[in-house]
Write a protein that binds this DNA or RNA. Structure first.
Length: 581
RNA sequence: GCGCCUAUAGCUCAGCGGAUUAGAGCGCCGGCCUCCGGAGCCGGGUGCGCAGGUUCGAUUCCUGCUAGGCGCACCA
């Protein structure tokens, strides 16, 4: 909770009259009731008393008036004004003290400012990106990749030990398709020269031919079955494809600043399914149905979960059950997040329910973090139909566009390509985080490559300007790092403009925003917050001169605070923060 | 047929377990002083899908309906 909110909540709790016996006002989370008044003229924080009316058996207006009077009897110096209005108690903070407490907190905490530390000693496993090695690395993977990365940083920032797992789709019928394709049309020379291109060619060819010759699908199933039996030749091919794919993935991940702790995918679990199946059998949860082995879930109102095909081979659910079990045994996590698209909601519901039914109560810590699909020109992205937009092409296009703009507007910038990469990729990342995760995103190049308005580059640009002015202060003999080391040297009364108070408040609520993101398992609030902070800052900065003003030191201190929060925020979203662009 | 998700301004979207007067971007129109970076700033706004319910008060919670999207057995 933010500094102000916590202090006010504590004060209210202390000053509130004791409730009737049996009615405990402590049960109401007072801090959660506090909110920003619609108009700053009312105050900085408002406490609605309506929900307490029943507990105290008194009118809200009366409660508010009494509470305000009680607080005013010995009003602490950090509160300038406390008054009751329409059932609310409105608090006006002492601005200089507020500025001092927020800015010195940012100064002392620096890159840690905003962290709740709530995750200390807890482990969270985040399963994200998880491409299928037998498919092209396409844009539809961007959302899980970007979301997962942001969530990983967010949880790590809150003190969690984060295990980033890339649960590769490297086992299953699709891999059989690949083996069949390679045997029929594979070109060894091409594979050696440009493996990714060749693998893609085989992928497309297979799906084209399979339209005309459905028996290819049977061959693929057969090939996978062989693979699962450990056929040496199939295994060798598969290993090679897998290796080449991972190398390619890693290269792209590096561009986005992503590294995984584990690439344990489906194949990793291929020899770990027996115990799960046995367990389900022992619990009497498995039955034969139409030749297959399934776990009925009627009592949970869910369709049965398929465990084994009629031919005895395993399925996606089987491997996910094994993975869930393994993750529990291996990591003992406090939380497991599966960042996987919304189409698999039922699947995860079934997996979790099967484990629950089998008595694995730890599965309550497992969550499917669903997100909406990416639509492309009114069509859901489908890699099979050939409508492929490669993930890397999107990054390239964005970087190119960014480079053009830099050449035009900042021709003297050193390291243009590097900065263009940071800004271009930042634009893409931000664009995928700015919507609530369950919303569908319709991808189009024009919007993706727009750098004006509510975009990543807007935030990065604001950050760069901030760095620019702080640099300028440095060249003019001000040691920016030293400002605020001794707060008593500063006169916080000088930060008295309404825009300055608004900025202080934005900075103060940063920790709350992160908690909100953590609770909702969605970085969208942070992305929105950064935009708002930039707007407030840009408005301020546009109308108040910093350098040479009589409040220069104080304003530079304020700017340094904004810079730190933007830096932390961009990092948490998984974006770079170039100091010039 | 059953289930899940979504519905807020022309368009794309915020609005945290309710609260005083519902916000932003894009697009459109009009402005920005030889001054800290114009990827910027300022101004222009008759909008919460429909119908009920709970409440002192509902965009928010509940129910039903409508529309769109996605799932529902050997793909993942």
């Amino acid at each position: 909770m933010g500094l102000f909110k916590a202090k006010i909540a504590e004060l209210i709790k202390e000053k509130l009259p004791p409730a009737s016996p049996g009615l405990d006002p402590d049960e109401v989370a007072l801090g959660d009731l506090l909110e920003a008044p619609p108009d700053p003229a009312y105050g900085d924080m408002a406490f609605p008393t309506f929900s307490l009316a029943r507990t105290f058996r008194r009118a809200p207006a009366k409660i508010a008036a009494d509470l305000a009077a009680e607080i005013n009897r010995a009003r602490p110096d950090w509160l300038e004004k406390v008054e009751a209005l329409n059932g609310y108690v409105n608090f006006t903070l002492n601005k200089p003290l507020a500025a001092r407490s927020v800015l010195t907190a940012i100064k002392s905490e620096g890159r840690r400012y905003g962290s709740s530390g709530a995750g200390q000693g807890r482990k969270v496993v985040i399963d994200f990106s998880s491409p299928n090695i037998a498919k092209p690395f396409a844009v539809n993977l961007l959302r899980t990749t970007v979301l997962g990365q942001a969530l990983s940083r967010l949880y790590a920032f809150q003190g969690y030990e984060v295990v980033r797992v890339n649960h590769l789709g490297d086992w299953g019928t699709q891999n059989g398709q690949w083996i069949v394709g390679y045997r029929l049309w594979g070109d060894e020379a091409a594979l050696a020269a440009n493996p990714i291109k060749e693998l893609l060619r085989l992928y497309i060819r297979f799906h084209e031919e399979a339209e005309k010759h459905p028996e290819l699908e049977d061959q693929a199933r057969e090939a996978f079955h062989l693979l699962e039996q450990g056929d040496p030749e199939a295994l060798a091919l598969w290993k090679r494809f897998r290796h080449l794919s991972i190398e390619e993935f890693k290269r792209v991940y590096a561009r986005m600043g992503i590294e995984f702790d584990s690439y344990a995918g489906e194949a990793f679990y291929s020899d770990k399914m027996e115990p799960v199946i046995r367990l389900l059998q022992e619990k009497g949860m498995l039955v034969e149905s139409e030749g297959a082995t399934v776990a009925p879930l009627d009592e949970y109102n869910l369709p049965p979960c398929l465990i084994l095909k009629s031919d005895g081979s395993t399925l996606y659910p089987t491997r996910d059950l094994a993975a869930a079990l393994y993750r529990w045994e291996q990591y003992q996590p406090a939380l497991v997040l599966y960042v996987v698209d919304v189409r698999q909601s039922l699947h995860f519901q079934q997996i979790f329910t099967v484990l629950k039914k089998a008595g694995m109560s730890w599965v309550d810590r497992y969550e499917h973090i669903a997100y909406g699909l990416i639509k492309f020109q009114d069509m859901i992205m489908s890699t099979r139909k050939g409508a492929i937009v490669f993930l890397e092409d999107v990054l390239d296009e964005a970087a190119n566009r960014s480079l053009e703009i830099i050449k035009e507007r900042n021709p003297d910038l050193p390291d243009k390509e590097k900065v263009a990469e940071q800004v271009g990729i930042g634009a893409i990342i931000f664009r995928f985080l700015i919507y609530s995760r369950l919303k569908e995103i319709s991808f189009d190049w024009q919007t993706a490559l727009s750098f004006d308005g509510d975009t990543g580059p807007y935030v990065q640009y604001t950050y760069a300007r901030l760095c620019s002015i702080l640099r300028k202060a440095g060249t003019e003999g001000v040691d920016v790092e030293k400002i605020g080391e001794d707060p008593s040297c500063l006169c916080f009364e000088k930060l008295s403009a309404p825009e300055e108070a608004a900025l202080i408040f934005e900075l103060e609520r940063f920790p709350d925003v992160l908690i909100q993101c953590e609770a909702g398992r969605d970085p969208v609030a942070l992305a929105r917050y950064l935009l708002e902070l930039c707007r407030v800052f840009n408005g301020y900065y546009h109308q108040h001169r910093v350098m040479g003003s009589d409040a220069m030191a104080e304003r530079l201190f304020l700017l340094a605070g904004v810079r730190t929060v933007l830096q932390n925020g961009l990092y948490l979203l998984g974006m770079s923060a170039p100091e010039e662009m």
